[in-house]
Simulated assay, not measured.
Amino acid sequence: MKTKQAYATLPHVTGFIDWLATELNSKTLFNHQYVDRRSGNKWSCDSLFGAYQSYSWNFPGNARLAYNPGSCSASNAKALDALRQDLIAAGSNDALVLQAATDVMAWGGVTSRNVEWLKVNKTGLGRMIQEVKTALIQKDPDAPVLRSKSLRFNSGMTKIYSLICPEFLIYDSRVAAALGLLVVQYCKAKELIQVPDALCFPWAAAKESENAVAPKRRNPSTGTLQFKRLRSGSHHAQWNIRASWVLSQVIAHEAATHSPFHQIDAPANALRGLEQSLFMVGYDLGHAGLLSND
């Protein structure tokens, strides 16, 4: 696979994987807290697995796929499994793929514009998603379909591909923020003054009012450790491939053998659990917790 052959050899990639796998269960490195803007409640964790245990995402029920509304990791796992099976069963049938993809967007709370785009591009939708799926599984960011200017790859589409591509995680603004934060911790541990290019996972802003009283911080940059902004399309796809490969290698690492992430019950798995822990941490990087020594 091109990602494994080329990306893995770039400076600090294996170093970061080794470091994170070794520190995956740390009870000191990953303390974090913030205030949930909707509920006003304080959220905190003392470890990455602790963040997973506190995972919460409110999603609507789906009568067609026979799952109820929920919010915890177990209920989300059941919903995602139903959505995954529906997407796979749809194959390349445009009408069925449109229905399945629309339901994924509803689960993820990203129907705005995404569903409109799916409907406008219904003809050929099934074939297009299959072509992108193949390129992602082959981990080939240079595949023509992933280099195309017409490629739609954003926080909505990453959810679809995470369900139909093995070991492919949802790379949205929250996961990107937390992953960047882990890179900051790695750079500090290794006394690096700049973020290595191969670990410069791009970030995206939270979707909120420009006049928000307490805006959420999704940019992990601090001091000389700076990250670039995420761009939709090919840029997003490339970094989604990289992030998925890196974190799958962390989970598979010998040093992570006894991590509680491996004890997560099916239909979820260790990689999905790690993704969900990052999702929780990345809600707001704030100015405390992991960044308290800035």
Results as ranks from 00 to 15, higher is better:
179 L>W: 06
179 L>N: 08
179 L>C: 12
180 G>S: 10
182 L>Q: 08
182 L>D: 10
183 V>C: 05
183 V>P: 02
184 V>W: 08
185 Q>P: 01
185 Q>Y: 01
185 Q>L: 15
188 K>G: 03
189 A>N: 15
190 K>T: 11
191 E>H: 15
191 E>M: 12
193 I>N: 13
194 Q>R: 08
196 P>T: 03
196 P>M: 03
199 L>I: 05
200 C>H: 09
201 F>G: 03
202 P>H: 10
202 P>N: 10
203 W>G: 05
204 A>S: 13
206 A>P: 00
206 A>N: 00
206 A>V: 00
207 K>A: 07
207 K>D: 09
207 K>T: 11
207 K>G: 10
207 K>Y: 09
207 K>L: 09
208 E>I: 01
209 S>G: 04
210 E>P: 05
211 N>P: 00
211 N>F: 08
212 A>T: 12
212 A>M: 06
213 V>C: 00
214 A>N: 05
215 P>D: 03
217 R>A: 04
217 R>F: 03
217 R>K: 14
218 R>G: 15
220 P>E: 02
220 P>F: 01
221 S>G: 14
222 T>F: 00
224 T>K: 09
225 L>A: 11
226 Q>H: 02
227 F>D: 06
229 R>P: 01
230 L>H: 01
231 R>V: 07
232 S>L: 03
233 G>L: 03
233 G>A: 05
235 H>F: 09
235 H>M: 06
236 H>F: 13
237 A>T: 03
237 A>D: 01
238 Q>Y: 04
238 Q>H: 10
239 W>L: 01
241 I>R: 00
242 R>D: 03
242 R>F: 15
244 S>C: 00
245 W>Y: 12
248 S>E: 05
248 S>M: 05
249 Q>S: 09
249 Q>M: 14
250 V>R: 07
250 V>A: 08
255 A>R: 13
257 T>M: 09
257 T>D: 08
257 T>K: 14
259 S>I: 04
260 P>Q: 09
260 P>E: 11
260 P>T: 09
262 H>R: 09
262 H>F: 08
263 Q>M: 11
266 A>R: 11
267 P>Y: 14
267 P>M: 11
267 P>T: 10
268 A>L: 02
269 N>Q: 12
270 A>M: 04
271 L>N: 08
271 L>F: 08
271 L>G: 07
271 L>T: 02
272 R>V: 13
273 G>I: 12
274 L>C: 01
274 L>F: 14
275 E>Y: 02
275 E>K: 04
275 E>C: 02
276 Q>L: 13
276 Q>M: 14
277 S>G: 15
277 S>T: 05
277 S>I: 05
278 L>E: 03
279 F>D: 05
279 F>K: 02
279 F>A: 01
280 M>T: 14
280 M>Q: 15
280 M>F: 06
281 V>T: 08
282 G>E: 08
283 Y>W: 05
283 Y>M: 00
284 D>R: 09
284 D>H: 10
286 G>T: 06
287 H>C: 11
288 A>P: 00
289 G>K: 02
290 L>Q: 07
291 L>E: 05
291 L>H: 06
291 L>S: 09
